[in-house]
Amino acid sequence: MPSLTTRSTPAPVADGAPAAARVAPPPPARRRTTKVRTPLTGRVVKWIVLGATALVMLVPLYIMVINAFKPQEAIISSPLAIGPDTFSLEYLQAALTSEKFNVVRAYGVTLLFVALVNLCGIALAAPVAYVIARGRSKWHLGLLLLFVSGLFIPGQVTLIPVVFVLRVLGLINTIPGFILFETAATLPVTIFLFAAYLRTVPRDIDEAAALDGAGRIRAFWSCVFPIMRPVVATIVVLNSISVWNDFVSPQIILGPSSGIYTVTTGVYAAVGEFSTDYTTVFPTLLLAVSPAIVFFVVMQRHIIGGLVAGATKG
């Protein structure tokens, strides 16, 4: 816990006169005493607050994990404890092989949707963002504003008329219809971030490709698009999280009648009716969140960086 004092001392030492500081340690020492005098209680309070908050954040996760391995009576009588006498893999296995909700299939379906939406969204957004970023006329600015206006239209508002449009197109309750809607939903943020990034890519690259005889479309995909890797990674992270967690769109557009369940609509179908049978609830929830948690732990830096970029630039 010495982070507070070690943080405050090196900065002035490095910035001020390093030689003097090395020769004469008193200044940092004096500084430390003035810092610590009051903050000692402050630091205790700080770590109590952080510790208590961390507990509040982690205990629900702990409850979910341990109770996925216990029978109903043990869950109700002692929800916070687990012992070898009540531990059983049976409930997790039952949830894995449940006929009501095929988790493994839902993972596959949702992953497929995530991949398709990412692929379609980027394939559509990248070229139009390039046209916008390179364009100089007011038409290009208008195009950008058109797409950016989509940032302020909540998906739930357009969902009802989208059902109408998809019904007219004959795509309601179909995978293409769902992918079409989800892809469109990703366009505003994607185009906005892509266009902002492309403005920082020098035009020399386009011109060099043109000199080599490549057309504009080929020049974009073969020379400019590979440079966009960082911003593409950001977008993949953002889109993947939002598609994986979306519940309303698959529930309404695919609908139970299609028989296609994503992780969220599957959990709703399985847990919604059994919400007091905790031997179904906890294992199902555990299976549903595990991929997201693993993805988060592995990709944490990219996820946080992507969210910050998406929110502060958008």
């Binding site: 008329p161 939903a185 479309i217």
Partner: peptide
């Protein structure tokens, strides 16, 4: 032409899933 080919599909999808629904929401 290249600009239209590159921008067209995105505009089409966006209009079909955002602009038309916005107008339809009011009509409906």
């Amino acid at each position: 032409l290249p600009g239209i080919v590159m921008g067209g599909p995105a505009v089409l999808v966006f209009v079909a899933m955002f602009i038309v629904p916005m107008i339809l929401a009011f009509v409906l």
